[in-house]
């Protein structure tokens, strides 16, 4: 017993180092598996508050470009509204979109230089935001809500090697999963598209609506180039994103009202 205590005292620095290093590695491994990281995230009172107050100032620097984006979206929506000759069609569109509830938020921390990028938005449980809600901009998709606190939520960006979102070719219904190889923030990879699908450079990629997170037909990007994978069964497609992930400000959060029902059914 004496010897054990002596050993601990002699090597206390190494043991301290070893314990703390193991804890850090544990946190790292947890953060690499989807929805597992528990304690270390920026959606808390202190970090969220600091980011929020700094963001209050820094938003002024890109007011102009954000204004222009919102203006263009308004223009697009106005033209949709006044050009819809068939009112009945507009009604049916409304009822189609009814299971999805939209709310808006602001990105207060954007990140795109790491391999596992996580954003922070200024809405949380107080605004009934929950885990696994989709996040989009006017131009394309951004990511999926992960950790939620009272006033803030973290979003797993599509520029994250652990994220995987179901996407498909717009012209056919061949679907695959959207991943990122951590090389270029403007390019993501669409894998598992079967060889039989006809892919062309410039084809539009949209969400497939199979995950019950995103509705169908939200634009993602266009095919930049493609090749067959090693086994020559599936295409690996480089997709150029429509939205600029390096310049995000106003985002929309999508809640699928039918999601609990769908997950219940799938888990049965």
């Amino acid at each position: 017993m004496q010897q054990i205590i002596n050993f601990i005292i002699r090597n206390k620095n190494f043991l301290l180092f070893f314990v703390l290093f193991s804890i850090s590695i544990l946190f790292t491994i947890q953060s690499h598996s989807y929805h597992k990281s528990k304690f270390i995230n920026s959606a808390n009172f202190v970090t969220g508050g600091i980011y929020n107050s700094v963001n209050n100032i820094s938003t002024y620097f890109n007011l102009k470009s954000q204004n222009r984006l919102l203006f263009e979206e308004n223009k697009r929506l106005k033209s949709l509204l006044y050009n819809s000759k068939n009112i009945a069609k507009a009604d049916s569109l409304d009822s189609l979109n009814a299971p999805y509830y939209f709310s808006n938020a602001q990105v207060i921390k954007n990140n795109y230089s790491a391999t596992d990028n996580v954003l922070l938005i200024n809405k949380g449980t107080n605004d009934s935001i929950k885990q696994d809600f989709g996040v989009i901009t006017t131009e394309g998709i951004v990511g999926i809500v992960d950790k939620v606190s009272g006033n803030y939520a973290t979003v797993i960006s599509i520029l994250n090697t652990t994220s995987s979102i179901s996407a498909q070719l717009k012209k056919t219904n061949h679907y695959g999963s959207l991943t990122w190889d951590a090389k270029n923030p403007a390019l993501v990879q669409l894998t598992d598209i079967p060889k039989i699908a006809k892919v062309l450079v410039g084809d539009t990629i949209v969400t497939s609506g199979q995950s019950s997170i995103f509705p169908k037909n939200i634009p993602i990007g266009v095919v930049e180039n493609y090749e067959l994978d090693d086994a020559e069964n599936y295409y690996e497609i480089n997709v150029k994103l429509f939205n600029d992930m390096t310049n995000l400000e106003h985002v929309y959060i999508i809640e699928n009202i039918n999601k609990p029902e769908i997950t219940n059914l799938l888990n049965e």
Binding site: F14, L20, S24, S37, I40, N41, N44, Y51, N111, D116
Partner: peptide, 22 residues
């Protein structure tokens, strides 16, 4: 760990810092 909390990076900065401190 504080840097990791801000950057949502798990424990990578903590591991590197503990190592160089040791």
């Amino acid at each position: 760990i504080i840097i990791d909390m801000f950057l949502d990076s798990g424990g990578i900065n903590a591991a590197a810092c503990v190592f160089i401190a040791y």
